[in-house]
Amino acid sequence: MLKDMTDSKRTDDHIQGQTPSVVHATVISHHFWPTLDQSDIVMPGPFQQLQEDYAKKFPVFKPDKKLKWLPHLGTVHFELELQDRTLDVDVPPLEAAFIELFSRQDTWSLEYSAVKALATWANMGVIKEQNENTFVLLEQAEDGAEMREMAPVVAAPSLPPVQTVQQQEAEQMRVHWKFIEGMLTNLGSLSVDRIQTMLKFSPNYDKTAEQLGYFLEAARREGLLVVQNGMWRLNK
């Protein structure tokens, strides 16, 4: 598993050295990692094109390998430029895909499943629900307007909910849960410091050991992990 992380970093450095890309891929082997959830998400034009461009460069350094994307995992970082403000955000790919729709037109009528994916943007004041399931882009912020609060999407119900002030950190850690689970499956018991060291090889991981500890404790409360003498393992 650690080898996958170091190889991914090395390959990405090679690709970036040839033609810089905003895409950074972590390539994992199915031989050592738990089965990851699949998704039929197709990222819209610009995102898909970035993936395809990156994938074309990959065989230059790994001629016997071919990338198979899991577009529902990871994080998208971008600047959202509106008429009177710019937002610098990190969001899951699904939320990025839906907000990209508003670059084509300002108003969309969407199904309930899509409405849930727009919760983040509604709470940021980027869009608002004009009529039932109809959303409009707010190029200019509505002064004094009360935005309708929408419940965030629970993208991975198998992960532990947190009901403390650490909830936001746990939500951001959600995408890394499969990596933590894989580490403990293959390596057994690990300390927080050891898990933290391995997670640093994962793209977009920027949490402190203390924040990781909060997340592991939340998982323990939910019965997913156990800890003994500072060593964490899966609760089997």
Results as ranks from 00 to 15, higher is better:
K66G: 00
E81P: 01
E111R: 14
A122S: 14
E129N: 07
N131C: 02
F61Y: 15
L118W: 04
V89C: 08
D90F: 10
K66P: 01
K57L: 10
N133E: 06
L94E: 13
A117S: 13
V76D: 04
V89H: 09
L70P: 00
V60Y: 15
Q83M: 10
L73F: 11
F102W: 10
Y112N: 05
L101Q: 09
S109Q: 14
A117F: 00
Q130T: 14
D64G: 09
Q130K: 14
S113C: 09
W69K: 05
S103I: 00
E100R: 12
F98W: 15
D106R: 15
Q83S: 14
L82Y: 02
A97M: 13
V115A: 15
G74H: 04
L101D: 03
F78P: 01
F61L: 03
V115K: 15
P71S: 11
K62N: 12
P92S: 09
D64W: 00
L80E: 06
V126Y: 02
F58S: 03
V76R: 05
V126D: 02
E111Q: 11
K56Y: 07
D90N: 12
V126R: 02
E95P: 00
G74S: 06
L87S: 05
E95K: 07
T107V: 13
V76Q: 04
T75E: 03
A114I: 07
K57M: 11
E129Q: 14
I127P: 00
P71F: 00
L118C: 06
L73G: 02
E100F: 11
K68N: 05
L87I: 15
D90R: 14
D90V: 11
A55M: 05
F78Y: 08
E111H: 13
A96W: 03
V126C: 11
W108R: 12
Q105P: 00
L80D: 03
I127M: 08
P59R: 07
F78W: 10
Q130W: 03
K116I: 00
V89Y: 04
K62V: 05
M124F: 14
N123C: 01
D64C: 05
A96R: 09
N133S: 07
P92H: 04
P59G: 03
E100S: 13
E100W: 11
K68V: 11
G125V: 10
S103F: 03
I127Q: 01
K128C: 06
N123D: 06
A55Y: 05
T120R: 13
N131M: 11
K65H: 11
H72G: 07
Q130P: 00
R104T: 05
P71W: 03
L87M: 13
L101W: 13
H72W: 04
E95H: 06
Q105M: 06
E129F: 08
K66D: 02
N123A: 02
P92C: 07
K57A: 08
H72D: 12
E81N: 12
